[in-house]
Design a protein around this nucleic acid. Structure first.
Lengths: 310, 310
DNA sequence: CTGAAAGCGCTTACAG
DNA sequence: CTGAAAGCGCTTACAG
């Protein structure tokens, strides 16, 4: 079973009776070359007929980088944000002849280095990066219009609208630029609303540890009546801990999630959360990476899904 | 800011005063060439000093495929199986100079084709494939020893041990080779235990649909006292549906998950599930892909985490 | 309007 | 023990 030899540009050239150069110019739609319509048609037909697909590897060697974009993500993510972001990024890259690959796990520089050496991607993106900054994204990334700041405002605003003033922000154990940004934005919005600065709490897994952490929080900060969680996952831990402590939710303690997962829809009580559609974030990130005009797509503003936990 | 030109084999050869060929032979540890120890040392030192890293792209062009392995995964997965599988696969590939990349989303052939064209990976693996088959994996993949069959036996056996005889298997809406395998293996093990063939049920999202589906199941198959779910995620839907119907768990209906997620630990009632560590599966899949000796690693047999739902 | 040629960086059969 | 050379498949400046 010899692997069928791949169809190359040479084959296309031979089949259409032109030189490889000419075939290449036609297929690349090279604007600095004028090729007769007849030749163009012949070359295109031959390419189609032979099922010619350019070798990405050869192209990458020639051009200095491949048409691959690598997205680095940490482990925990299953919310709507990640899914829709990746969907958007993927679709937009595909529309411009690029391919998205994701790299999982904790990312030290050595691993990234290895990938760069292995496939020389056009770009390496860290998940969540454009969500925080968005400098060049006209207020879309970290901004107040459909960005992280806006989503934080939705979360804290919902709690405030239900009369909560002393809020704890539950962040994951491992800090990152994104947790910092969340903290900063949350504090800023609380201030805007005239609320005291939120205290930060770590509600770790497994369940018993989370419960212990919530008990400590209640002891140290008895005024806290609501928890704003970094993710639904962490909000679910808050729910479990509250239950272990015999606290009623939302009576004794309100809990609001972030990024609306299915787990939140099914929890007891059902979790109130911020729903975020990041497809446009993904699309714009793709365009920005490819140095294309960002376009006029507006990010979805997000909304609170009010269920039972606030 | 001119990008610092990459260090090539030519640079190493020049720096150590040998030809490119000789440098190449040394760095590849080519066994058909005898190179004097002095030369070898000079070349190695120069490579180290210059920070030489071979270009994966050039190598791929020359060798016909890159040292990249692509893992295709569908969307929903966040259990221990996937994490540990990917961890093992990644580590083992890395140990042999390869890099793992994952491709997300539903995988039509066109997308796969594009990736193959773009980076010519050494292999493309579908997530879960080796879990089902495992022909060449000495009973490890689909087999009864630390494989899918064994894990299914754990799940159904736990239900049987609690006196359940009429079991429903909750499969995802979208069928695949893996759902087929689960069904087949579940039916087989039920038969082994002398139980009637399990009925299959689809408990879809959103919550209301899942509830309706469970109601129909109860109407049609009133004898069913337990649900064995394809994943924890689906088990959680069963829990939500049972709650909506006023059913007590496990009193009126027992539910057992699969692949032990954090969501199951936090649910109400807490979910009993099958815990699976697939690191060895991942490692052996890597070795098999690379045509290496599978080694002597034994897969973790898995175990039931008994909580409150059975 | 079209073609011959160079070169991206590597591996390795072949000739000394 | 070491080197000159071919070739993987592409793109594109240059010469006709």
């Amino acid at each position: 079973m010899a692997t069928p030899r791949r169809v190359t540009l040479n084959d296309v050239a031979a089949a259409s009776g032109v030189s490889r150069s000419t075939a290449g110019f036609v297929l690349a739609d090279n604007p600095n070359q004028t090729i007769s319509a007849a030749t163009r048609d012949r070359v295109r037909a031959a390419a189609r007929e032979l099922g010619y697909v350019p070798s990405g590897v050869a192209r990458a060697l020639r051009e200095g980088s491949s048409r691959v974009v690598v997205l680095e993500v940490d482990w925990a993510y299953d919310g709507n944000y990640a899914r829709s972001y990746i969907r958007g990024l993927d679709a937009e890259l595909a529309a411009h002849g690029h391919v998205l690959m994701v790299r999982h796990g904790s990312h030290d520089d050595r691993a990234t280095e290895q990938i760069v050496q292995a496939i020389e991607p056009r770009a390496v993106v860290r998940f969540g990066e454009s969500y925080m900054t968005g400098h060049d994204l006209e207020d879309m990334g970290g901004g107040w219009r459909g960005g992280l700041a806006a989503h934080v405002a939705l979360q804290i605003g919902h709690l405030a609208a239900h009369g909560h003033t002393h809020i704890a922000l539950a962040l994951p154990t491992a800090h990152s630029a994104l947790t910092e940004a969340r903290h900063r934005l949350t504090a800023r919005h609380a201030q805007t609303l005239g609320l005291p600065a939120p205290v930060v709490v770590d509600l770790p897994s497994p369940r018993a540890s989370g419960t212990a952490a919530l008990r400590r929080l209640r002891g140290k900060h008895p005024q806290v009546t609501a928890i704003a969680a970094f993710t639904d996952e962490i909000a679910l831990r808050a729910l479990g801990a509250a239950r272990d402590l015999g606290l009623s939710v939302p009576g004794d303690l309100a809990v609001i999630g972030f990024d609306d997962t299915e787990g939140g829809e099914l929890s007891v009580p059902a979790l109130t959360s911020v729903h975020i559609d990041a497809e446009v974030h993904g699309r714009r990130a793709a365009r920005s990476l490819l140095n294309l005009d960002p376009g006029t797509l507006d990010p979805d503003p997000g909304h609170v899904v009010a269920r039972e936990s606030v």
